[in-house]
Nucleic acid binder design. Sequence first.
DNA 1: AATGAATGAGTTTTCATTCAT
DNA 2: GATGAATGAAAACTCATTCAT
Lengths: 191, 191, 191, 191
Amino acid sequence: MPKLGMEPIRRAALVEATIAEIGAAGSLDVTVGQIARRAGMSTALAHHYFGGKDQIFLAAMRQILRDFGREVVAGLHAARNPRARAEALIAASFAPSCFAPATVSAWMMLYAQATTHPETHRLLHLYQRRLRTNLTHALRPLSADPRGHAETLGALIDGLYLRAALSPDDTVAQARATAQHALDTLIGPRQ
Amino acid sequence: MPKLGMEPIRRAALVEATIAEIGAAGSLDVTVGQIARRAGMSTALAHHYFGGKDQIFLAAMRQILRDFGREVVAGLHAARNPRARAEALIAASFAPSCFAPATVSAWMMLYAQATTHPETHRLLHLYQRRLRTNLTHALRPLSADPRGHAETLGALIDGLYLRAALSPDDTVAQARATAQHALDTLIGPRQ
Amino acid sequence: MPKLGMEPIRRAALVEATIAEIGAAGSLDVTVGQIARRAGMSTALAHHYFGGKDQIFLAAMRQILRDFGREVVAGLHAARNPRARAEALIAASFAPSCFAPATVSAWMMLYAQATTHPETHRLLHLYQRRLRTNLTHALRPLSADPRGHAETLGALIDGLYLRAALSPDDTVAQARATAQHALDTLIGPRQ
Amino acid sequence: MPKLGMEPIRRAALVEATIAEIGAAGSLDVTVGQIARRAGMSTALAHHYFGGKDQIFLAAMRQILRDFGREVVAGLHAARNPRARAEALIAASFAPSCFAPATVSAWMMLYAQATTHPETHRLLHLYQRRLRTNLTHALRPLSADPRGHAETLGALIDGLYLRAALSPDDTVAQARATAQHALDTLIGPRQ
DNA sequence: AATGAATGAGTTTTCATTCAT
DNA sequence: GATGAATGAAAACTCATTCAT
């Protein structure tokens, strides 16, 4: 029973299925067949709507980054002062959603593919630049060297995320605390 | 005329070829055929010596980590005091050898596969623990919270490496400077 | 707002698109999708009007032959005597329209498919018989063996067309001259 | 039970199977799977030895042309004078082997693909040039215009072959007679 | 009249792996 | 010790065709 306007629905379903499938497999070795099956359609349709596997994957990555971006924006919105903004950025980076297996795998995929796939690299770069900008902006009124501190904090967050994401036990809270602590060290503790 | 005692030679050749091939491809999509050809032997022999692709890859990763470990040991050996030891650890992490394309790709592979492959995960964990131990040890005489600072510095190094490795332009020196600066902030600048 | 009497328009558009697409691709590997897109409609409609790909192709071939037939008829019409009629047949066979890439490709398709597709074979046979009849008719007052000479001349024209069509450089004029010369040899030169 | 030196055997088997399969299908729509099955091996092996479908087809075409070339050489070898050489060329072009279904289909494939595939075009061109050279050579002592007559005769042979090949009933003998007759007309009948 | 939606069946191609020699 | 031979299994992708709307 074909309906009209299925394209956005199908695309969304495929993206969601891709993320889910990556999460379930815990790996990047996911076939279009698996994705399509999970999304409840034929591989042919998946190809029809996306043109190829690469573009399905790319769309999934964009979705991951978009979700993360939303998390960040929401956090920043709720923050009432610079320090709160900086803390919100840390919080967003260690939000539970970032540690869903699918998200972790997708994130690893981003890093792994960035060396080869130019488009992936561009995407990753975009995210890093945005985070740096946000951090710099938040630190400007608080720090003598907002740029440098943003750079440091950003890299620290990435490193902590990497470690927490790969740890079997939940060290997310600890990672977040470490980041928070580093922030305190850089700009002085909260009064 | 097959020679005796070829096993270690063949294994070493395969491991080297694996790393080189990964570097050349700039990706993890490397076939056993490519590796074997580069190592100058048949795929059958590659399987004979390693049992399977996974184990070839694992051996390559071990080699990468071993190489890095050697770099670390050499640096630590030359260091004459705790601070020098901490700085040597930073220096080793940003040594040129760590940024050879093959090494970068292999490193990314490590992260990407660690979520799935338990053995890979174990390897990565080992490295991280060793680095943490080394750092903690170096910081003990210098820091009020050697453990915490080691954790922070370790994660920061990972994050900076990730970013520097993926940047097209050479930001290695800057990354290293940032790590060094963070060390100064944590334990106070050199007198 | 669908209009009435669209059928002939749509069919013509599809046939034209088929020939154009074959010409553009320079090959027989043309999909219904490509044809329909070029004709400005959906593949479903193409199927609706023709029933299947084979029939679209067949219609295109009929069109090619019809076009050629028209060229022949026009030439014969303008000819005022038997010799002129024979020459008109040669001229029609080497008319520029016969060497349009689309036409050449379609013609090759005819030959290639004639071995398999009985319907295609029938079409090709029809054309060949008609050309032979026309030639025989024109040669009757000029030749001692109109049938035999028509057979020879017809085959020669086909062979020359094949060679000229596949030559990258324009050898059409030369091919035509050769055919003309053969005619002269067979029935004696013009007085 | 794998043996050594299989490559030439396998390649030959594949080429033969390709020609046979094209003949059986009476069409160019032959899959690698069909070819491999007929040759008694897996598709993977077919790819292994030839690299791809195109190259299998190309090899088959080369074989067809080589076979024809051998037929020609044998005929020329047996001929004791120029006229016999010219007749041998005609005879070779209408030899039974040229009308085996597989050969006809392959020949059609050559023509159909020549417009697109440069390599195929090159091959076809080669054959045409060689035939022209042979004919010119044979006609030199017999004809006032050996080049022109060779051109004419060559095209005539192609055209007659095309028609005979596509005729269901056996008109090969007649086609050959027509070519022979044309030769007589061009250079005068045998004394 | 027209189409977006959807798919089944098929194609080429790749690759890790096994085995007899 | 070493390899050419061989394959099964699976992957991405294509396309003619159908159908409900």
